[in-house]
């Protein structure tokens, strides 16, 4: 029994790492703009496709590169381009609406998401794409547990990114500016903080992290299709809200909780069909008792 539970926990941490990475993007944008970027799930999808493009390009070179180099190359390529996409979306779609009612921005975000899905569908066609295996698919047996190098890579890389982001927000000047904007946006420009640039950088960071999540997800579940971002986007959004939207550590915590929900629902209930039911019920119950999420504190230290 114990190995089965441990196996499930390990799988949940792997899945939760990806949810946490995407939840970070929701939470950062909310923290700084009090706006929910519903296109974020689709930005993750584009990140996954860009990782695929990068990996295929590097694998197609006449000389054979070692697999870790292909992985890193694809990661950098995808993170850079997806960051640019995030900045572009903010510049073209959200910035003109910054003074408009918040609901306009949310609807625009939904529209941007639909645009990304259908643009990808039109460009690449509806056939699902296969992600090439960059990490050797060996199964290591650790005391009854089946562990793959890929699983370890995902867990440690995601943890690394989360620690780096946490440090960035808490210890650097940029992080201080981000926290300041979320604390009081009207006042901050008076202190000489370039608000627009900080917001752009926030979108760039969030999108780049989503792209890293896309690459990991593509490696773990190697069938990509243009609609893959929808469900994952919703789950990451719930993760962000459960953890306390606007709070970075909360998003990480929420991601892991949602990973556990997804993996353990079919263990205790007859079918995985109850996954969404369990996840959304958790959200509703939590919002009744803790409207600000697990780690969220009202109007204090967001981002």
């Amino acid at each position: 029994m114990l190995p089965v539970v441990a196996q499930n926990v390990l799988n949940a941490i792997q899945l939760g790492s990806v949810y946490a990475l995407i939840a970070l993007g929701y939470t950062m944008v909310y923290g700084i703009l009090t706006m929910i970027n519903f296109a974020h799930g689709d930005i993750f999808m584009v990140g996954a496709y860009l990782s695929l493009a990068g990996a295929l390009f590097l694998l197609g070179l006449p000389y054979q590169l070692p697999a870790p180099l292909v992985f890193l190359g694809a990661l950098c390529f995808s993170m850079t381009l997806t960051a640019l996409l995030g900045v572009l979306i903010e510049r073209l779609a959200y910035r003109p609406l910054r003074a408009a009612p918040r609901v306009s921005a949310v609807i625009t975000a939904l529209g941007v998401g639909l645009f990304l899905e259908n643009f990808t569908l039109a460009m690449l066609g509806p056939e699902p794409r296969q992600f090439p295996p960059l990490i050797p698919a060996v199964v290591l047996k650790v005391g009854g547990l089946a562990v793959t190098p890929l699983q370890l890579l995902i867990i440690f890389l995601a943890a690394g990114i989360m620690v780096a982001l946490d440090l960035l927000v808490r210890r650097t000047l940029l992080g201080m500016a981000m926290r300041a904007i979320s604390y009081n946006r009207p006042l901050v420009p008076l202190m000489g903080v370039p608000v627009d640039r900080v917001i752009s950088l926030t979108f760039a960071l969030g999108s780049a992290i989503a792209a890293a999540g896309g690459l990991m997800y593509g490696l773990a579940y190697p069938v990509l299709d243009p609609y893959m971002g929808i469900r994952i986007g919703w789950w990451a959004f719930i993760a962000a809200v459960v953890g306390g939207i606007g709070n970075i550590r909360g998003a990480m915590l929420g991601g892991f909780i949602l990973g556990l929900v997804e993996i353990f629902t079919p263990v205790f209930l007859p079918s995985s069909t109850y996954r969404d039911f369990v996840a959304f019920s958790l959200l509703l119950v939590l919002l009744i008792f803790r409207p600000t999420g697990l780690l969220g504190r009202p109007l204090f230290e967001r981002v």
Partner: peptide, 17 residues
């Protein structure tokens, strides 16, 4: 006799069972 729902990508808990 395990099931999942259309759109699922992770089957690890059913497969573990």
């Amino acid at each position: 006799f395990e099931s999942y729902t259309k759109g699922d990508m992770d089957f690890s808990s059913q497969l573990t069972k």
